[in-house]
Design a protein around this nucleic acid. Structure first.
Length: 189
DNA sequence: TATGAGATCAACT
DNA sequence: GTTGATCTCATAC
């Protein structure tokens, strides 16, 4: 049986947590799969929502670790983050892509496409496929509807610059599962 | 394969 | 009024 990740798993720096999340399994209401791509954001990072201080939108980033931070992206998409580090550090990990494994038919229905490689290959797609909404903002990651399982075998990790940002574009804070065809964009060798 | 527009909203200038 | 931690579809090469 896989090991359930508890809240205190997130009570560390995003850069300690991130590599351990690659290969872990994320389910929401029984739907999801293996995490293959994430990005980290930190309060000292100009690209982070929390960089400019606490606002109504990013408030949960300033609270305890081990909860979800959900925000509306481009007015269209819901994007899911995991809040890390002790309270007040305002850092989080953006879930960018999954390899679908559970509830695939529900994801196909929500996404309107049958292609497994296209179900969760981007933060907005993950949000839609897993039914993420604002209602999940601030909710604990170790209680329903969330379920997070540690990876059961070692994985090879690749890193690179983050995607879709205009500040701090060179920081290599994008993490991926090496060779996975389910990432949002290929990692440069 | 690559580039561009439109969708749509909260935060910020 | 402008800008995004984006995606899809259309049109062009």
């Amino acid at each position: 049986m896989p090991r359930l990740l508890r809240k205190n798993f997130f009570n560390r720096s995003v850069h300690e947590v991130a590599p351990e999340l690659i290969g872990a399994t994320l389910l929401i209401d029984g739907v999801g799969g293996t995490i293959v791509e994430i990005e980290t954001y930190h309060h000292t990072d100009p690209a982070a929502h929390s960089y400019v201080g606490k606002t109504q939108r990013n408030a949960v980033m300033f609270g305890p670790a081990g909860v979800a931070y959900v925000y509306r992206s481009y007015g269209i998409h819901w994007c899911l983050n995991f809040v890390c580090e002790p309270a007040g550090s305002a850092s989080a990990i953006l879930i960018r892509a999954l390899e679908p494994s559970e509830g695939i038919s529900r994801m196909q229905r929500r996404r309107g496409t049958p292609e497994p490689r296209n179900l969760c290959s981007g933060p907005g797609k993950v949000g839609k496929a897993l039914g993420v909404t604002h209602a999940l903002n601030g909710m604990a990651l170790d209680a329903p509807p969330f379920a997070l399982y540690a990876r059961s075998r070692p994985v090879e990790i690749v890193t690179g610059p983050r995607i879709g940002i205009s500040k701090a574009v060179d920081l290599p804070w994008r993490y991926g599962l090496k060779g996975s065809p389910f990432v949002s964009k290929p990692f440069r060798p």
